[in-house]
Design a protein around this nucleic acid. Sequence first.
DNA 1: TGAAATGTTGGGGCG
DNA 2: ACGCCCCAACATTTC
Length: 484
Amino acid sequence: MKRDPAVNASVNIVWFRDDLRVADHPALFRAMADPATITVALYVLDEESSGIRPLGGAARWWLHHGLEALRGSLAELGVPLVLRRGPAAALVPTAVAEIATELGIEPAKISVFWNRRYGGGERAVDARVKESLLEAGAHAESFSGVLLHEPWIPQTQDGRPFRVFTPFFNALQRIELRPALPAPSARNPRDLTDLSGDELTGWELLPSTPDWSAGLAAAWTPGEEPAWARLHDVLEDIAGGYEQGRDRPDLDGTSRLSPALRWGHLSPVQVWEAMGALTTRRPDAAQGARAIMRQLAWRDFCWNLLYQQPDLSTRNLRPEFDSFDWSWPRGSANASDDGDPQGLAAEHFASWCRGETGFALVDAGMKQLWETGWMHNRVRMVTASLLVKNLGIHWRMGEQWFWDTLVDADAAANPANWQWVAGCGADASPYFRIFNPLLQAKKFDPQGSYVTRFAPLSPGEPVVDLKESRVAALDAYARMKAHL
DNA sequence: TGAAATGTTGGGGCG
DNA sequence: ACGCCCCAACATTTC
């Protein structure tokens, strides 16, 4: 619907993406710094643009609730959230123009703000959007909001990207960090409630037939407010024992902040600041707080890698692994060879996905993933090691399964960490580091309570002989090295 | 952010 | 008392 043109009226449109929050949101903060200008929020579901990876099922569930929470937070600021679906490069300029028309605002009075994304396809889309907006006479401006530092900033002495984490971390700590911004304090100058856009339910982000999301809903509440509640728990109860507790899947010892960071309910800058403050406020928790800061830096490290190599989810960072002889898919050098799995490897992969490998810790982890959309970090390493090393299945298969099932599935961290486990990544775990799921269970789930919680039935026959498959993996690794 | 194989050491049982 | 053996405990090397 069209309104009376408002003389000299202008609009600031904030394009939300992986930053579903109102505090420390540089683009939103900038928009609402103009007290006389109305702000409109826009979210675009883009499942079509090439180079942008469609969301997995668990991520779609989180997005639905995350957007509802964001809409609530924005409503308190008097800011409406407009939802649109389509290929963003074309759709965003169109949607922006339509919002302006509805408000009776001329193109020269439109500003569009967003926090930058760093995936290859996302960068291409954002560049095209900016170009179109500028051509149409609008203003467009992007901000740094989803990482600690822009991925091109941390550099080695000779100006190259880091491939080893520890020097990356040292360099990162020497870079001045921007201070976290508060939520905008001003309300929109006038209320807008009836802008046209999609209905969230129409996007069908929630699973229906069947609805498998009950376990996710029991484990998580998406949104900025619950994320802050968890951050406070981490500061009070988790950080102090983090260094021991982080390795214990049977305890609540990790931060569990990964989904909040993935969806931007919290920014890494906010968490970094909170942990930095904790190191001085609570000397007993200082070491744990620093370990959490190191984890945040690892997240930035992964995004640096993705920025350097946009096809991180399909291509080995270390090319010598291109000749590795995986049991499936065969011919790993050819990334397009993704035919239906056949034979034993296919059965192995299916039992791994279902949590029916016969190794209690692995099966508990895979069931935790399926039920709650999340898996404890140490168990991620153990399950990944079994798939890649003992079953000899390409890391990409596991990466894709995690992408579909994790609520925190992150376009950079997921492939970077799979490559790390597989030994083909940056600063990777040496290939011959092969976890023994029985020993890992003994060390890190000593009473077996994690296993009991997620895989209460006694495990069946192991799908693979640990000793034998370990030798075979080392042999395959030796053959790869001999090929060089 | 391993695990297994191999090497070393030292205490205790025993002839 | 002494040497020998066994083996747990720890250290080092290897993959």
